[in-house]
Each structure stands twice: as structure tokens, then as C-alpha cells.
């Protein structure tokens, strides 16, 4: 991959322009990182100090750091189980929604059927429906099918909530794939199934990966959907977000544990993001400019 002709885009700029660009980028990165840094610093500070002085006072001597917050959070009963629950919820829900969206996007992009555009507009239009307004009807539906309170309920719910955006993103990317490829495949006798699995899917890997990152992060960080569809009946299936939020007591005390818990929660998404990041930028811009 490194052998890709990167030089093609690299018109030599004067050295000071590049340095200036890098300086600006570094500055913006630093500003972006400050809240996370504050969180990290505070997660190692005793609670009395967190509430009495700013995090920046802690980075100069005398240092007063502690691991107590992490110890408390990690020793908390059910945190490990909640981490696994989060994986059980997130991974299947991500896979299902990406698969369904890919198939739908292919159909919208390359298959001819009546009302194709109208249906596409309706699907994308669902983006504006606020998730909260669907809670009661969806929960009723889940109750009537008997799957309320199970993982299946949350997978289906997340798939549904994710599909409008997923279909929109994939449809635009797949629509930008070269027409000639599908035409020649059709001439060679490939049916739509073959064209989808052998052509469209492999060519869409970058956008599939970036969609997977989006979905993964969205579902991993979700609290409300899991809480509503699982919480009332099966507390042992609840994900990390619910357990972490409940480190705080009903009066809003004990917030100092949240900083440590936040870092534990962030660990996996960070790994996923770093592992898939090379797809990320290409996937986002992939469908934007053709040619």
C-alpha cells in the first residue's frame, strides 16, 4: 500500500508553508486534546482536590496523584461482566447493521425496481426521526414478540436506528463505483448476488470499515437504548455505559470515579479506531469526489 504513487498529489510546496501547516495542525490537535488530558489528569487525583482546584494545578509539583479511583472502579462488582455485555451488544449489532445496509445500498445503487428513489428518500428521511420518540412503540413491538429484555432486542433496535445513515453513506459510495465493472460482469453472466459479493462488497471495503467504526462507537457509547429495552427486566445484560453512569449516586455524589471509569470505557473504542483508522479518512471522502 505504501507503494501507492503518493508523489502524484505531492506538488512540492515551499518548506515554510508545510511548517506553517504543521504548526496550525499541532495547535488544533492540542486544543482538541485538552479536555481528554484534563480527564486523564483528574482521574489520578484525589476527589477533594478535584473539587477544590483545577486539573492544571496538578501537573506542576508538588504532585499528589493516586490510583484510588481506578482501584475503586475496577474492584466494582459487575464491571467485567458489563464490559463483556457491551461487546455482546456492540459487535453483533454493528455486524448486522453493516451487512443489512450494504445489501440495501447495493440494491438502491445498482438494481432497478419500482419506486427505488422514493424508497431511498423515505429511508434517508428517517434520519430526522428522534430516537426518543420511538422508544414506546418499539418497546411495545418487542414486548408483543416476546424478545424485550434480550440481546436480540437491542441488536435489532440498534440496527434500525443505524440504518438510515448507513444506507445513505453506503449508497453514495457504491453509486460512485465504475459502472463499466457491473456492466461487464452482467455480460459475463454474473447475477446480482455475484456482483454484490464479488464486486461491490470488496470494492467498498474502505467505506464499510468507516461505517463499522461509526456504528461501533455509537453503539458502544449508547446508554438509553440498552437501558430501555433491557434495563427493566434483565439487569445482568446491561452494558458498560449504564454501569459506569451508576457509579454516581442518586444525589450526584461520587463523581470522581467517573473520570477513571471514562478511561476504562474509552480503551476499546480507541483500539478499534486506531486499528481501522487507515480506512477511516478514505472511506469518508471515498464517495465524495469521483474521477
Amino acid at each position: 500500500m505504501t507503494a501507492m504513487p503518493r508523489a502524484a498529489g505531492a506538488v512540492r510546496r515551499p518548506i515554510w508553508t508545510r511548517w506553517g501547516l504543521h504548526a496550525v495542525l499541532l495547535l488544533i490537535m492540542a486544543i482538541w486534546l485538552i479536555p481528554t488530558l484534563a480527564l486523564l489528569v483528574n482521574s489520578f487525583r484525589p476527589s477533594a482536590e478535584v473539587s477544590s482546584s483545577g486539573w492544571w494545578t496538578a501537573i506542576v509539583p508538588p504532585w499528589d496523584f493516586t490510583l484510588a479511583n481506578y482501584e475503586h472502579v475496577l474492584a466494582r462488582q459487575g464491571l467485567g461482566q458489563a464490559f463483556i455485555n457491551s461487546l455482546f451488544i456492540t459487535i453483533p449489532a454493528t455486524v448486522i447493521s453493516v451487512m443489512v445496509a450494504a445489501i440495501a445500498a447495493y440494491a438502491f445503487a445498482w438494481m432497478d425496481f419500482p419506486f427505488r428513489n422514493v424508497l431511498f428518500v423515505i429511508v434517508v428521511g428517517l434520519l430526522v426521526v428522534p430516537l426518543q420518540s420511538t422508544l414506546i412503540p418499539v418497546l411495545r413491538l418487542l414486548a408483543s414478540t416476546g424478545i424485550a429484555g434480550t440481546y436480540m432486542a437491542v441488536w435489532l433496535a440498534h440496527t434500525g436506528y443505524g440504518l438510515p445513515f448507513a444506507v445513505y453513506l453506503l449508497r453514495n459510495y457504491m453509486g460512485g463505483l465504475p459502472k463499466e465493472v457491473f456492466e461487464s460482469a452482467a455480460i459475463d453472466g454474473a447475477n446480482p448476488m455475484v456482483a454484490f459479493f464479488r464486486l461491490a462488497l470488496p470494492m467498498s471495503v474502505p467505506v464499510l470499515a468507516s461505517l463499522a467504526i461509526f456504528q461501533f462507537l455509537f453503539i458502544w457509547n449508547d446508554l438509553l437504548v440498552s437501558l430501555i429495552y433491557i434495563g427493566a427486566t434483565n439487569s445482568e445484560y446491561l452494558p458498560l455505559t449504564v454501569v459506569v453512569a451508576n457509579l454516581v449516586n442518586s444525589l450526584g455524589g461520587e463523581t470522581h470515579y467517573l473520570t477513571a471509569a471514562a478511561f476504562i470505557t474509552m480503551a476499546l473504542p480507541l483500539i478499534v479506531f486506531l486499528a481501522l483508522q487507515r480506512y477511516f479518512v478514505r472511506g469518508i471522502t471515498g464517495g465524495a469526489v469521483k474521477g
Binding site: 424485550a148 434483565n234 454516581v248
Partner: peptide, 21 residues
Amino acid sequence: AYTGTRDINAVLTTGVASGIL
């Protein structure tokens, strides 16, 4: 099986409406 949440209002309101309580 205890579920603790400060969003209890949302859980119980949707629960009463749907019967999942």
C-alpha cells in the same frame, strides 16, 4: 437483579406504556 439508573423516569414511563416492567 438490580438496575440502578437516574433515568428511572424514562424506563418506568416507557415500561408502563408497553407492559415491560
